[in-house]
Design a protein around this nucleic acid. Structure first.
Length: 464
DNA sequence: CTAGGGTTAG
């Protein structure tokens, strides 16, 4: 029985099935297993923590804790198992997932009282919590006071620093770390890539593979690929692709395959992206389709993108909001306005997806860039105020400038000013529109207004 | 038991 429940919970955690976890919880309560086996209790904690309901982990703890209080005050003969290192590890993890530092700190304290001051797993969980929250004073205190650290302890700190952009600090720890593993190297690559130091990210990858003889994982490739895209180097793209292929990472993880599609497209070779995409055959998933549509859109191949969308639907895939955004973008860049509007109808009516601000932005751009300004303006006016933003109106203002519609430009600028007054580019654009229309007095007014309001000018934008 | 980024407007 215990073994069965255990495997049920382990599966529930890995496949994210909150309902199973919950049902097993009730079952354990009624059968009394929960208060007899700390192992089952811990597994349940872990399931809640991983399954996105950390609050339930806390209440489960509270339930058992109050049982303890009750039993210690009465002279019951029932022997209750006590919390162990696993319990505190999972409870602190639940607090990390709930982004609740106060609760986590409490569990850390209780873990220490229970004698786990020097326990690697418990303390690493605490370290992870502080690192995830970017509270470096506490993170470093835990790290410094750990009598034994393992590679996970180091990696938690390094990857935490990386996520918060503290690359210099991460780097010094990296150099100091005795035995780096694939997670360490991946973390450092990721750290360089995410702040745009693509060349250094790539060098680290080279060092990792060639000098250190370390085997990159699928995550390493996923972390590296944006660097390849950033460098726009087809040679490197092919090299990394071949390497991933040879190491079996593409067959192993569809995410790697999808990032290869994306990177070929971003390196400027939509043909390679498309060929690789087609070669995936039946392994393609929704993200693969979305990625190739995005790539085709980037390269202005509207018709081809639409063709992929249709094929995708025929293959039985249900497009999501990202897929629709991609195809709108393709229609926008390919000048396929009426197709785009049909896709909007399909999204809302057939798939019951409400457009979000990015969808609106894309569609407004699509209409506006072909000069269908009234339709674009009406669409923009129909955006629910909760999600409206200045970017959409700015797009429209750009189109008004391009198509010399001064009256609409004035209306649009008024809208923009209701939302944001401190962006210099808007004043510059409106000024230039007035100049183009020969309305020099109005242009001058805008120039003055910009200085009055001390609006920030953009780099690369003329300062009137 | 503890660590690591698939696609997303202008």
């Amino acid at each position: 029985m215990e073994r069965f429940l255990y495997s049920l919970l382990t599966n529930a955690a890995s496949s994210n099935l909150g309902a199973i976890t919950q049902q097993t919880h009730s079952l354990l309560l009624t059968t009394g297993h929960l208060i007899r086996s700390i192992r089952l209790f811990n597994t349940l904690l872990r399931s809640y923590s991983l399954g996105g309901s950390p609050q339930k982990a806390f209440s489960l703890y509270n339930q058992l804790q109050s049982l303890y209080c009750f039993h210690s005050s009465s002279s019951s003969s029932l022997q209750l198992p006590s919390f162990d290192s696993f319990s505190y590890t999972f409870l602190i993890n639940a607090a990390t997932h709930a982004s609740s530092l106060p609760i986590g700190t409490q569990f850390q304290g209780r873990g220490i009282k229970a004698g786990f001051h020097s326990h690697v797993y418990v303390q690493t969980a605490a370290l992870n919590m502080y690192a995830a929250a970017g509270v470096w004073s506490d993170a470093l205190q835990v790290f410094d006071e750990m009598p034994d650290r393992n590679s996970v302890s180091w990696n938690v700190l390094i990857t935490g620093l990386v996520r918060w952009g503290e690359l210099e600090y991460a780097r010094s720890l990296f150099d100091e770390m005795p035995e780096k593993n694939v997670v360490t190297w991946t973390g450092m690559i990721d750290g360089h890539v995410r702040i745009g130091r693509f060349g250094e990210g790539l060098s680290l990858f080279q060092r990792m593979v060639c000098c250190e003889n370390m085997k990159p994982s699928e995550i390493t490739i996923l972390a590296l690929m944006p660097a390849v895209s950033g460098l726009k180097d087809m040679r490197v793209c092919r090299l990394v692709h071949c390497y991933a292929e040879k190491r079996g990472l593409i067959a192993f993880d569809i995410r790697v395959a999808n990032s290869v599609i994306d990177t070929y497209a971003k390196c400027g070779c939509i043909e390679s992206a498309s060929r690789f995409f087609e070669d995936l055959m039946e392994r393609k998933n929704l993200v693969s389709w979305t990625t190739i549509i995005t790539g085709l859109a980037m390269h202005g191949f509207g018709e081809e993108a639409v063709e992929r969308f249709d094929r995708m639907e025929k293959a039985g895939w249900k497009p999501n909001r990202v897929t629709f955004l991609s195809v709108f973008n393709a229609c926008s860049h390919g000048g396929l306005v009426d197709q785009g509007l049909k896709f909007l109808e399909k999204m809302v009516n057939e798939y019951q997806i409400l457009p979000d601000i990015k969808h609106y932005g894309c569609l407004v751009d699509m209409l506006a860039r072909l000069g269908r300004l009234e339709e674009a303006e009406n669409l923009a006016l129909g955006i629910p105020t909760e999600i409206a933003n200045v970017v959409v109106w700015r797009t429209l203002l750009g189109a008004c400038s391009f198509h010399d519609n001064v009256e609409m430009a004035e209306r649009v600028t008024r809208k923009i000013m209701e939302m944001e007054r401190g962006y210099g580019g808007d004043y510059v654009l409106m000024h230039n529109i007035f100049v183009g229309a020969g309305r020099f007095g109005d242009a001058e007014k805008f120039r003055k207004l910009m200085h009055q309001r001390n609006a920030i000018k953009l780099p690369g934008q003329s300062a009137i």
